[in-house]
């Protein structure tokens, strides 16, 4: 059984300056309750590994969706992402020199996270070859395998992963709804401390074992999003 904690507990576990993986795609599948509380906390200096900077407007019309709140509050010093075009505040802070942004191809990004959680030394991908991605510090080298060129991408690992699950049972088993699975599934494997925010905290057995998408053994704590939101 995993301990169920409050959003405030979750925020207290995240040190200033931590490297945080945040699941989600343009805000869909972000841990909205924890991110709201983290934004209110004012903690800063984070390195965030997240596909994007979400959007300035949520689907319900609210201002700053998901991870965009941390950007608005300037709590992030470095963002490792694939696409930041839907949140103009990212480019603004980049241009001011207050936010370092590292852009990686999305398919490389997800596999680097997977490698980080799967004990692999890197990822060999043809993506990014002969482009400026080769200059990234996340590229170890260009490797020739039987006449074809690949980039050897370094694994990504984080201090904390913030994972959004639709149904989460007391063992931490997760079922993701719709497209919210996106990066959550790989990130849940790739951090020292894994906190899942449950849209619905359910009894063990509610999620059939065959349908568990992330096994609870990788989860450390559960935030009951139903309580938090």
């Amino acid at each position: 059984m995993k301990r169920v904690i409050t959003v405030q507990d979750a925020v207290a576990m995240i040190p200033e300056g931590a490297t945080i993986m945040i699941g989600g795609f343009m805000g869909c599948g972000n841990t909205h309750g924890i991110l709201d509380a983290l934004a209110r906390s004012g903690k800063r200096g984070f390195t965030v590994i997240c596909n994007d900077g979400a959007m300035l407007q949520g689907p319900d019309g609210s201002e700053c969706y998901g991870v965009a709140k941390l950007i608005r509050n300037r709590q992030i010093k470095r963002l490792i992402a694939t696409h930041v075009g839907l949140n103009p505040e990212v480019a603004q802070q980049m241009n001011e020199g207050t936010l370092q942004v590292d852009l990686l191809p999305q398919g490389s990004f997800v596999e680097m996270i997977r490698a980080g959680g799967a004990g692999l030394g890197g990822v060999l991908t043809p993506t990014g070859f002969s482009t400026i991605v080769e200059d990234s510090e996340f590229v170890h080298s260009v490797v020739d395998v039987d006449g074809k060129s690949y980039l050897l991408m370094r694994p990504l690992h984080a201090d904390v992963a913030l994972i959004s699950g639709y149904e989460v049972d007391h063992y931490g088993n997760i079922w993701y709804k719709g497209t919210t699975r996106n990066f959550n599934q790989v990130m849940a494997m790739a951090a020292d401390l894994v906190i899942v925010e449950a849209d619905n905290l359910v009894e063990a057995g509610t999620i059939k074992p065959e349908n568990v998408m992330t096994p609870g053994i990788v989860v450390d704590f559960i935030v009951d999003g139903g309580e938090a939101l």
Partner: peptide, 23 residues
């Protein structure tokens, strides 16, 4: 909040389709 397309806009899945993770 649960189903968007690659532009972040509300989307849907058709019969016979699937939701998959990014990997």
């Amino acid at each position: 909040a649960y189903v968007v397309d690659a532009g972040g806009k509300p989307a849907s899945v058709q019969t016979g389709g699937a939701f998959i993770d990014s990997s």
